[in-house]
């Protein structure tokens, strides 16, 4: 099994440590990982802003880079969801269909393809999980509070096996953080307010660290936490799963 590692554009440029943790983690789990150099972005920033047509080049570049892998794994629920859901705007060749089917968010891949839950990580902290919306309600990485049915969460399942992690209980367990791509700028007031409210919920629940499957949500929350000098650390789930004492 050959896995193509997709590192989203903003992680590549601004949060390389998340990419590094993802790669190291997959290698620890004995996955044969390849990283195609020509990759850029899934196209989501343009598409969610209403410029789907401007994202066609990015989509094609994505497929070109990843078409030969058995799986494509990325530390972003949002980007994985975009590939799966919105790559209907380019011609549905076998490669495109294949890439859409084989793209996985990291936790999803570990739990459902590798079928591993115990990674052997250690992280002795109180952790609040921010359930990023596209992973939760798009990829169904867990049950959401709106739906009625069996409760589950791949992220929680993995974290529960990490030695020392104490998961805190939030008042609103899956409310959006307010990032939303260009929404963060075009609806600045609401975006900031949503972020502040999420952070407060984590603080009130006694979390020391906020984690998520998506660095985009975390970048927004971290921006507020840093500006307001709040006692919270922000880490991508890959960084926690990759940590050992």
């Amino acid at each position: 099994m050959k896995v193509g590692l997709f590192i989203p554009c903003y992680i590549n440029q601004l949060y390389p440590q998340v990419g590094i943790a993802t790669l190291e983690l997959l290698e620890k789990l004995n996955v044969d990982v390849g990283y195609p150099y020509g990759q850029t972005c899934c196209g989501q920033p343009m598409a969610n802003s209403g410029y789907e047509n401007e994202s066609v080049g990015a989509c094609q570049n994505f497929v070109e880079n990843f078409k030969d892998f058995d799986y494509i794994v990325t530390p972003s629920g949002s980007c994985a969801y975009h590939v799966k859901k919105h790559y209907n705007i380019i011609e549905q060749t076998d490669d495109v269909v294949n890439v859409r089917n084989k793209t996985y968010e990291l936790c999803d891949f570990i739990v459902n393809i590798l079928k591993i839950k115990h990674i052997g990580a250690s992280f002795p902290h109180k952790v609040g999980v921010h359930k990023s919306c596209h992973g939760l309600r798009g990829l169904r990485l867990g049950s959401c509070s709106e739906n009625v049915g069996t409760e589950y969460s791949y992220i929680d399942e993995l974290l529960q096996e990490v030695s020392g992690v104490e998961l805190v209980t939030l008042t609103r367990k899956d409310e959006c953080c307010g990032f939303g791509g260009t929404f963060a700028v075009t609806e600045e007031a609401i975006s900031v307010k949503m972020g502040k409210d999420r952070i407060q919920d984590h603080l009130d629940s006694g979390a020391e660290v906020i984690t998520a499957t998506d660095t985009s949500c975390l970048m927004h929350l971290e921006g507020l936490i840093t500006r307001n000098k709040q006692p919270l650390k922000v880490l991508h789930i890959a960084e926690i799963l990759n940590s050992t004492i």
Binding site: L14, E188, V192, E222, G223
Partner: peptide, 22 residues
């Protein structure tokens, strides 16, 4: 920079993931 009104931007790392990987 509307983002920066109430939020900090991340510090730009010296190396991208690409650089590190290479």
């Amino acid at each position: 920079n509307v983002w920066g009104k109430e939020r900090d931007l991340p510090l730009g790392p010296k190396e991208s993931f690409d650089d590190w990987y290479k």
